[in-house]
Amino acid sequence: GKMTGIVKWFNADKGFGFITPDDGSKDVFVHFSAIQNDGYKSLDEGQKVSFTIESGAKGPAAGNVTSL
C-alpha cells in the first residue's frame, strides 16, 4: 500500500536519492523515473512524499512517488 515519508536527499544530476519512511523502516532508494509529475522529475530534501515499495533489481525501491 501507500506509505509516506520525507526525502532524505536527492541528487538531481544523477537522478536518484533516498526517502526516509514515516514508519521508521529502512531508507528507500528512489529513482527519478518513479516520480509522478509532468514536469521536471526531481525531489527536494525534506519534502514530504507518498510512495509504494516496488522490488527492483537492486532491492526495494520507491514507486508512484507523489509530493504531498
Score class of each variant (00 low, 15 high):
N37Q: 15
P60Q: 12
F32N: 05
N37I: 15
I53W: 07
V65Q: 01
S50P: 00
A57F: 12
G24W: 07
D13F: 15
I19T: 01
L68W: 05
A34G: 07
F51A: 01
G15M: 04
K58P: 09
K41H: 10
D13G: 13
S50T: 11
F10A: 02
G56H: 13
M3K: 11
L68R: 06
G56P: 04
L43E: 01
V7K: 00
G1S: 09
V30Q: 00
E45A: 14
K2G: 11
A61Q: 15
I6N: 06
Y40M: 12
S55K: 15
V30M: 06
T52R: 04
I35P: 02
A34F: 04
K14W: 10
H31A: 04
N37L: 13
T4Q: 08
G24V: 03
A12F: 10
K58S: 14
I53S: 04
G17S: 01
G63L: 12
K58V: 09
G63T: 15
K26T: 14
D38L: 11
A12M: 13
K8A: 08
F16A: 02
G56T: 15
G56F: 09
A61S: 10
A61T: 13
K2T: 15
G46M: 05
I53E: 03
G46V: 02
E54K: 05
G56C: 05
W9H: 04
N37K: 14
M3L: 13
S33V: 04
G5I: 01
N64T: 08
P60N: 11
M3E: 06
G39S: 09
A34R: 06
D44A: 13
V7I: 08
K8E: 02
L43I: 06
G39C: 07
G1E: 15
I6A: 07
F18G: 02
G1K: 05
K26V: 13
G59E: 04
E45H: 14
G63P: 02
K58E: 09
D13I: 15
D27V: 06
K8G: 03
S33D: 04
G15E: 02
G17I: 01
G46C: 05
I53N: 04
T52L: 08
G1P: 08
S50H: 08
E54V: 10
I53K: 07
A34V: 11
K58R: 14
F10S: 01
L68N: 10
D44N: 15
E54L: 11
D23S: 08
Q36E: 12
S33L: 10
V49L: 03
A34Y: 04
D13L: 14
I6C: 08
N37P: 08
N11Q: 07
K26R: 13
I6S: 09
N11R: 13
T20R: 12
G1R: 04
I19C: 01
N11F: 09
A57G: 11
D38W: 09
G63V: 14
S67F: 14
V65R: 01
V65G: 01
H31V: 03
K58D: 10
S67M: 15
E45S: 14
G59H: 07
D23R: 04
Q36K: 12
S67N: 12
G46Y: 06
F32M: 11
I35G: 02
I53H: 05
W9E: 02
P21V: 05
D27M: 07
D38Y: 10
V65N: 01
F18E: 03
E45W: 15
D38S: 11
G56D: 14
G24Y: 06
F16W: 15
S55A: 15
T20E: 08
T20H: 10
V49N: 00
N64R: 04
K26G: 12
G17W: 01
N11G: 04
P21W: 04
V65K: 01
W9D: 02
S42K: 15
V7L: 03
D38R: 07
D38A: 12
S42Y: 15
T4Y: 11
M3S: 09
V65W: 00
V7C: 04
W9C: 05
F51D: 00
S55M: 15
V65C: 03
F18A: 03
P21G: 03
V28T: 03
K48D: 04
Q47L: 07
T4W: 08
K26W: 09
N64M: 12
N37V: 15
S55P: 12
T66V: 15
S55C: 07
I6V: 14
S33P: 03
G15R: 06
S67P: 14
K8F: 04
N64V: 07
I19R: 00
W9V: 04
Q36C: 06
M3Y: 14
F32R: 13
G24K: 10
G5R: 00
S33C: 05
G46N: 06
T4G: 05
P60H: 09
F51P: 00
D23L: 07
S50G: 06
A12Y: 11
D38Q: 11
Q36I: 14
A61H: 15
A62H: 01
S55Y: 12
N37M: 15
V30K: 00
P21R: 04
G56A: 11
V30D: 00
W9S: 04
G5W: 01
G5V: 00
G15K: 05
G24Q: 08
P21A: 05
K41F: 09
S55N: 15
P21H: 03
F18V: 05
T66F: 06
K8H: 09
D23M: 06
T66C: 06
D22P: 03
G59C: 04
K48I: 10
F16H: 06
V7D: 00
K2P: 15
Q47M: 13
D27G: 04
D22G: 05
P60F: 13
S42G: 13
N37T: 15
D27Q: 07
K48N: 06
N11Y: 09
V7T: 04
Q36F: 09
A34P: 02
K48C: 07
S50K: 08
V65H: 01
D22V: 08
N64S: 11
Y40N: 12
F29E: 02
P60T: 13
K14G: 05
S55V: 15
S50E: 13
G17H: 00
F29R: 03
V49K: 00
A57S: 13
K26S: 15
G63M: 14
G24I: 04
A12V: 14
I35H: 03
L68Q: 09
D38M: 11
V28L: 13
D23Y: 08
V7G: 01
D22E: 08
N64I: 08
K41M: 08
Q36M: 14
S42C: 08
I35D: 02
Q47H: 11
M3W: 10
G46F: 06
K8N: 06
G46E: 04
D22W: 08
V30W: 02
L43C: 03
A57P: 14
V49A: 02
D13H: 14
A57K: 14
H31M: 04
A57R: 14
E54G: 07
T66A: 10
D44Q: 15
W9I: 04
D38G: 11
Y40A: 12
D23E: 09
F10M: 02
T52Y: 10
I6W: 12
P21S: 05
G5M: 00
F29I: 03
G5H: 00
S25F: 08
F18L: 04
G15S: 03
T66K: 12
G24E: 05
D23Q: 07
G56E: 11
E54T: 09
